[in-house]
């Protein structure tokens, strides 16, 4: 087990290095940081001097080597745009994104599984039809539009919820949370729904399909034949089997949620890492872009690992297979 985790971690480091290298070679297509870093009065010589100071005249592989060397020590440099240490910037924005992603993930999972189970158990009910149709609209509308729509309905027309920002926050140690204040929680509602909607639909459809599949299996029929209650059969037996594949997908979706948060964060002016990244791209803030991409890669790698371990915990068959394989 330990060996397995270690091996996976070693692979992860490799993945991260590749991500860093690829992003580094892509940055030059994003634009020239010097163009935004200096006012329009700057002369050619000024620009050249800054370029030299930033090390942009070095070959890409040298820049990368320099970045990698420092990154290992946790030093991601200073943001060109905000002139603050990148690591600190990202860490200060991460709680906002994680809270949003986490709540969205919960919304997506709870409602996704709930609706999925409901529509699987009541295949022909009118409510199922309503849910299925609405969910189709949910996936086909772009996140941006959903966000704006929600803002117009709930912030402008009804004036129930804030249209932007995080509301009041409280610092718990170095973690800035919006979960502890009423305005912080109110501010979370619309962005979390916007961000979670797509994943919710995805999970719902997956759960429904899996559940229908599971409900057809012999062990479910046998469970019914033994007189187990519907509750025990549907939730104890069918749902648990449904969740095995669903966990993998949902877990991986959490990574996507964090990555997709970019759009939602922009629409709602949510001060997370996604908004930070978008602004950095527009400014060609290379240190922030590089660190963000590394962070996303890390998130995916870690989530993958956790999902594998979870899978392992949920499905006893895997345990034996591995055990056997080791002998």
């Amino acid at each position: 087990m330990i060996a397995y985790i270690l091996r996976r971690l070693a692979q992860s480091v490799l993945v991260m290095l590749v991500v860093a290298l690829v992003s580094f070679s892509l940055f030059r297509f994003v634009g020239d940081p010097v163009a935004t870093l200096m006012g329009q009065e700057a002369t050619v010589a000024d620009r050249e001097a800054l370029r030299e100071r930033l090390g942009l005249n070095e070959p890409v592989y040298m820049q990368f080597a320099d970045f990698a060397m420092r990154a290992v020590q946790g030093d991601f440099g200073i943001s060109y745009r905000l002139q603050q240490p990148v690591a600190e910037l990202i860490l200060s924005r991460l709680p906002a994104t994680l809270e949003l992603a986490f709540i969205s993930g919960i919304i997506a999972f709870v409602f996704g599984v709930g609706f999925g189970v409901y529509t699987a158990l009541n295949r022909t009910g009118w409510l199922s039809n309503v849910i299925m149709t609405t969910s189709l609209i949910g996936v086909s509308l772009p996140t941006f539009l959903i966000g704006i729509l929600l803002i117009w309905v709930f912030a402008v027309e009804l004036q129930w919820l804030p249209s932007f920002g995080r509301g009041e926050t409280v610092d718990v140690g170095s973690w800035r949370t919006g979960l502890l204040t009423p305005s912080g929680r109110a501010s979370l509602v619309l962005p979390a729904i916007t961000l979670g909607l797509y994943q919710m639909t995805l999970i719902m459809r997956l759960v429904r399909a899996e559940m229908l599949e599971v409900l057809r299996t012999d062990y479910i029929k046998f469970a019914r034949a033994r007189g187990l209650t519907n509750r025990a059969v549907n939730f104890g037996h069918a749902l648990k089997n449904t969740l095995v594949p669903v966990i993998t997908i949902t877990g991986l979706q959490l990574g996507s949620i964090i990555a997709f948060a970019i759009i939602t964060e922009t629409v709602f002016q949510w001060p997370g890492v996604g908004a930070l990244f978008i602004n950095s791209v527009q400014f060609v803030d290379v240190p922030v872009m590089a660190a963000y991409l590394m962070m996303i890669a890390l998130v995916f790698v870690v989530i993958n690992l956790i999902v594998d371990l979870l899978y392992y915990a949920v499905d006893p068959r895997l345990r034996v297979d591995r055990a056997v394989a080791r002998h």
Binding site: D218, Y219, F222, A225, R226, H237, N241, V244, D315, P316
Partner: peptide, 14 residues
């Protein structure tokens, strides 16, 4: 009571 044909699939694997 009822016994089905395939014991491999009649039991919940989890």
């Amino acid at each position: 009571g009822m016994v089905f044909q395939d014991p491999l699939t009649s039991l919940n694997p989890l």
